[in-house]
Amino acid sequence: MTTYLVEWTGREATMLRRALRLTAERFAARVGVSPRTVAYWASNPAVAPRLSTQETLQEVLDAARPEVKARFHELTRTTPSDQFTEAVRREALAMFASVSQTIQVGAL
Results as ranks from 00 to 15, higher is better:
residue 74 E to S: 15
residue 33 V to P: 03
residue 16 L to V: 03
residue 4 Y to Q: 08
residue 6 V to R: 05
residue 34 S to V: 13
residue 80 P to S: 15
residue 73 H to C: 03
residue 69 K to H: 12
residue 38 V to R: 09
residue 5 L to S: 10
residue 49 P to T: 06
residue 8 W to L: 01
residue 83 Q to D: 02
residue 47 V to M: 12
residue 48 A to S: 15
residue 63 A to P: 10
residue 81 S to G: 07
residue 83 Q to H: 11
residue 3 T to P: 04
residue 88 V to D: 05
residue 48 A to I: 13
residue 9 T to F: 09
residue 84 F to A: 05
residue 103 I to M: 14
residue 12 E to Q: 12
residue 61 L to N: 03
residue 42 A to N: 08
residue 62 D to S: 09
residue 64 A to F: 11
residue 20 L to G: 07
residue 22 L to R: 13
residue 86 E to M: 07
residue 45 P to S: 14
residue 55 E to H: 14
residue 70 A to Q: 10
residue 59 E to G: 09
residue 83 Q to M: 14
residue 50 R to S: 06
residue 107 A to S: 14
residue 107 A to W: 05
residue 79 T to A: 08
residue 61 L to M: 04
residue 58 Q to C: 05
residue 47 V to H: 05
residue 59 E to I: 06
residue 89 R to G: 09
residue 1 M to Q: 13
residue 99 V to W: 01
residue 21 R to H: 05
residue 16 L to E: 00
residue 83 Q to K: 13
residue 70 A to W: 03
residue 93 L to A: 09
residue 58 Q to S: 07
residue 94 A to Q: 10
residue 96 F to L: 08
residue 96 F to T: 03
residue 42 A to I: 07
residue 102 T to D: 15
residue 83 Q to T: 07
residue 93 L to D: 14
residue 60 V to T: 01
residue 3 T to F: 06
residue 79 T to M: 09
residue 6 V to K: 10
residue 8 W to Y: 14
residue 61 L to R: 00
residue 15 M to E: 05
residue 98 S to P: 00
residue 75 L to R: 01
residue 42 A to P: 10
residue 100 S to N: 12
residue 75 L to W: 06
residue 57 L to M: 10
residue 99 V to C: 07
residue 66 P to F: 03
residue 42 A to S: 13
residue 58 Q to K: 01
residue 87 A to W: 10
residue 26 R to F: 06
residue 80 P to F: 12
residue 39 A to S: 11
residue 32 G to Q: 08
residue 25 E to Y: 12
residue 19 A to R: 02
residue 20 L to K: 12
residue 4 Y to P: 00
residue 20 L to C: 11
residue 67 E to K: 12
residue 13 A to K: 00
residue 35 P to H: 06
residue 56 T to N: 11
residue 16 L to W: 03
residue 7 E to D: 13
residue 96 F to D: 11
residue 42 A to W: 00
residue 62 D to K: 02
residue 42 A to H: 12
residue 57 L to A: 04
residue 9 T to H: 13
residue 88 V to N: 07
residue 101 Q to F: 02
residue 30 R to P: 10
residue 102 T to F: 06
residue 92 A to N: 04
